[in-house]
Nucleic acid binder design. Structure first.
Lengths: 158, 158
DNA sequence: ACCTGAACACCGTTCAAGT
DNA sequence: ACCTGAACACCGTTCAAGT
């Protein structure tokens, strides 16, 4: 509260006119983080859109290392969270994932990417070089692409 | 500090004889969390060992929801962390993963599982039923098994 | 060697009072 | 309508003093 108030040139008490408490303020920050992710588009192929989204998530984590971990701790039920999720839903449908499989596929993909991004900025990979982490992230995306393929294949079989 | 001290029937100040500060105490807690994971064995097939480890990680998260997220925030360089990692290394080698691929494969697997477990206990999946989460976790393991297979295949090709 | 009381800095929060 | 000062509870930490 103190840091935010100072940036606004105001005392901490002034904030309570605008947020109910610290948790509420943090929820607002999470909402802002989510708006940094690119909005759903239809122009490019879905593979490209998903990998751009993945990179954007990672970049947002690096820009806001102190708060990014909150994304794992708040239920993704807000408007901005819904927007980010819809972006993935759209791509998955376009990839050919069955409608009943879209939701859980998105959950796994998002979890894996958020988990990596949080680990990276929160310090779990502190001893690894940037090159190594870039390579890992690339492979992570490969794993997820492969997973999407298998979901599509399983859907066709049903 | 207060809560720990109370459980020990002692004042908070007494703790400073045993830990240098709160961060140090939290590091110790993380170390304890890691020891809850099953030690490496060679008895059962590696697939079974990995899935037992995955379940153990998830169960530990559920037992200690207040501190489990710390696992993403501390570099995995302590003795207990090394032990947990070696357990996975062993299984991956047995699966046929090339030696130069073992490390990054472990990183991706651990990240995905920790990311899921943290999301679950930290509240991100608050609106999902237990059944749904169980099914998701099952699928997550399927995805990782598939990933290991592909790593083995790529290793053979090289 | 280990623990405690007093004390301090810091931080989230409330509330009456100011403009 | 919005901000502030005073005040409070809480918490991590230090240190001299106790056993």
């Amino acid at each position: 509260m103190g840091a935010v108030a100072e940036r606004l040139g105001v005392t901490p008490m002034a904030l309570y006119r605008h947020v109910v408490n610290k948790a509420d303020l943090l929820d607002g920050i999470v909402e802002l983080l989510l708006t940094e992710f690119p909005a759903p588009t239809l122009e490019d192929p879905w593979t490209e859109r998903l990998s751009r989204l993945a990179e954007a998530i990672r970049a947002t984590a690096q820009r806001h290392p102190g708060v990014f971990a909150l994304l794992l701790q708040r239920p993704a039920t807000t408007r901005a969270a819904r927007g980010a999720r819809d972006s993935v839903y759209l791509a998955l449908r376009e990839a050919g994932v069955n409608e009943e499989r879209v939701a859980h596929t998105e959950r796994l993909i998002s979890t894996a990417i958020l988990g990596f991004a949080v680990s990276e900025v929160a310090g779990r990979f502190k001893d690894h070089s940037r090159r190594q982490l870039d390579a890992d992230f690339e492979r992570l995306q490969g794993m997820l692409a492969q997973f999407i393929d298998s979901e599509v294949a399983e859907g066709r079989r049903a």
